[in-house]
Each structure stands twice: as C-alpha cells, then as structure tokens.
C-alpha cells in the first residue's frame, strides 16, 4: 500500500484554464496516485469537470478555451506538441454523465476502438469484447444479446457498456464525469461496485455530486470551489477532519 501510494499516474502543476476572458481554474496542483480512485467534488460551476476534461484534452474540442500548466503523464506533458491526441485519449478514457452508446450493436460498440485502430481478427475482437464487458460487470446481462442495439438497453446497462468500450481501448486512466447522476440507485450501486473492482488495474478519477458516493468508493477527495482547489486529502480525513472551514461547511450542506 505504502509503495503504491508513492507512485503517481498523473501530476498536474499550476493549472489555469480560461474560457474566453473568464478564468475557470486558478493554479491547481494535484497528483493522482496510481491504482486509486480519486473523487473531485464541489458545487456546480466550481471547475471540477473542466479540470477532468483537461486530462484527456477534452477542452480542445470546445473551442475558445486556453489551458496552461504542467500535466505529467507517462513521462511526458499531455499538452506537449509531440503528443498524439488520439493515442492519449485511448490511454486516458472518459465516461460521460449521459450514457452515449453508438447506434449499433453491443459487440460493435465495445469493439469499436480496436476496430478503428485496425484490429480485424474476429477471435481477438471477441476476446476483447468479453473481457471488457466482464470488467464492466455487464457480461452476464448481455452475453446472449451481443448483436442487439446498445440503444435498446436500460440507462444503467448503457453506462456500463460505455465503460466497457472505454476499457476495450486499453486505457491506463479512466475519467468519469458524474457517471451515475442519470441512473437509478440500483444501477448506481452496480456501477460503484464495478469501479471498486477496476481500481486494481486502473487509475480512476471521478467527478461526483454525490457526497455519499465519494465517501463510499474513493481513496482521495479533492474539493474545488470557485475554480480553486481548496483541499486534497485521503477520503477519511476529508470527511472526518477537514482542514479547511470551507470544506467542512460544504460537506455539512451549508452551501452548494
């Protein structure tokens, strides 16, 4: 455990993000330990999703956005000119708030990234699909209907199929932007259970609005407010002995 904690997967320093003239993040420094689940919490508009999107250069897609700071990942800076963005995004996968399966079968959804990068061998693809669906804890529910359209599944199932699609791309880091806020409690519990199992092999960074969720499944919590990182600590410490008054006020529901 101690050894694992020393290894960091992504280290960010002095991160500033601007949307046009408006500054969304102020000098954020965060290091994400390998094989742990870090939760980013804070009220709406505090910049936590903006920060998350920086990590796979998702802000590049929005336009009018300027990002500065250091993002060390795998010995390189994520924003380095030489970085292949497509390769980066397959290593740092992202699951969105709304499940967004593609309009074709479950099998084709999960195997999509592999097929797009040129994998044609049907046995290999089938093996990858099965492994990914098992990891996302949805294999038993869909194994007999892999040719069914992914859009016909329930929201919770769609979200886990999306997770499987991300896993099939062979990532090292998985980013999740409020992955359960559109799901019912049963589906939420399933996704949470899945994430706890995935921690063994992946570094997970998750934005959540749900304090109970953060306390249940995360190892670290980073609390954001008004674009600033207020406090970053082990989950237990944050919830039991927050160092900052603002963190304590937020967790006690005094604002948010």
């Amino acid at each position: 455990m101690a050894n694992k904690q020393q290894q960091t997967e992504i280290t960010t320093r002095h991160v500033n993000v601007y949307y046009g003239a408006k500054q969304a993040l102020f000098d954020v420094n965060l290091a994400f330990p390998k094989y742990q689940l870090t939760a980013l919490i804070g009220p709406s508009g505090c910049g936590k999703s903006t920060f998350l999107r920086c990590l796979n250069r998702g802000n590049d897609l929005l336009g009018h956005t300027r990002v500065s700071g250091e993002f060390q990942f795998e010995g390189r800076d994520i924003y380095d000119q030489a970085v292949n963005v497509m390769q980066l995004r397959s290593q740092v996968g992202m699951v969105y708030q709304q499940p967004t399966p593609f309009p074709f079968s479950i099998f084709d959804n999960v195997s999509f990234s592999q097929r797009m990068s040129g994998e044609k061998n049907p046995h290999k693809l089938a093996a990858i699909v099965e492994k990914s669906l098992r990891q996302a804890a949805i294999w038993d529910e869909v194994k007999d209907n892999l040719q069914q359209s992914a859009l016909a599944l329930s929201g919770g199932q769609q979200q886990r199929v999306c997770l499987a699609s991300v896993l099939a791309a062979n990532p090292k880091v998985i980013l999740l932007d409020e992955p359960t806020s559109a799901l019912d409690p049963v589906a939420t519990a399933k996704v949470e259970e899945t994430l706890q199992q995935l921690k063994a092999n992946y570094t997970i960074i998750m934005v959540t609005h749900n304090m109970q969720q953060a306390s249940r499944i995360s190892d670290q919590v980073a609390f954001f407010l008004d674009g600033k990182l207020i406090e970053f600590n082990a989950t237990k410490k944050i919830f039991l002995h927050p160092q900052e008054q603002m963190t304590s006020d937020y967790l006690n529901g005094k604002f948010g």
Binding site: G58, L61, M86, G93, Q98, F112, S117, S165
Partner: peptide
C-alpha cells in the same frame, strides 16, 4: 445527432473523420 456522440467518439481516441 447529440454532441455527446461526437465527444465520446473522440474520447475513445478515434479520429474525427472516423
């Protein structure tokens, strides 16, 4: 087609054209 579809395609590391 929802914008999220494009985003999640790109987020999988797939090119814009694909």
């Amino acid at each position: 087609v929802p914008d999220e579809v494009m985003q999640s395609g790109l987020a999988l590391g797939i090119s814009k054209w694909h």
